[in-house]
């Protein structure tokens, strides 16, 4: 299935929860969705017979200035098609439903996005830091991050 077909199919079910499809060759095309309906959308993307996206390639958190973004790269092992799903949330309230129960691999990806960007995945069973020490402060991949001066008595920079 091509991205625009997937977009039409999703649109017919979720109407205005699906915001837009952006096609801009040679970039990948992506579909922007409403963060609040993300879980249901992902669920049907995995389970509907014409989608069958059973393989979550990657989950990325992004800092976009005002907003935080979450990007899902999906792939279907059976039907061999791909799609990119994006959702944006405001920085003050970065709440995104967790898709960990749909694709188990999202568990660590979400923890990483929480660790480095600070996206709050709701419904994740154990959302703690994964790469940085558990008592680290701040989210390093945010654009306005400055590293702390000292950590446990050691100079950082």
């Amino acid at each position: 299935m091509l991205p625009n077909e997937i977009f039409e199919k999703l649109r017919s079910v979720y109407s205005d929860q699906i915001i837009e499809l952006i096609e801009n060759h040679p970039s990948d095309s992506f579909i922007t969705v409403n963060a609040s309906a993300l879980f249901e959308i992902c669920h049907s993307l995995r389970d509907e017979a014409f989608f069958m996206f059973d393989y979550l390639m990657s989950l990325t958190g992004m800092d976009l200035g005002e907003n935080l973004g979450v990007v899902y790269h999906l792939y279907s092992m059976q039907l061999k098609h791909k799609i990119v799903i994006k959702a944006f949330v405001p920085k003050e309230q970065p709440k995104v439903p967790s898709v960990e129960r749909i694709w188990r691999t999202a568990d660590w990806h979400e923890r990483e996005a929480y660790d480095l960007i600070g996206v709050n995945f709701e419904g994740h069973h154990n959302l703690i830091r994964i790469l940085l020490p558990y008592d680290w402060e701040g989210y390093p991949l945010r654009k306005d991050y400055t590293a702390p001066e000292m950590y446990h008595g050691m100079k950082v920079s």
Partner: peptide, 13 residues
């Protein structure tokens, strides 16, 4: 932004 989807990261999970 550059995200690397580490193979080992996913396989280890």
């Amino acid at each position: 932004r550059l995200k690397a989807r580490g193979t080992s990261f996913v396989n280890l999970s």
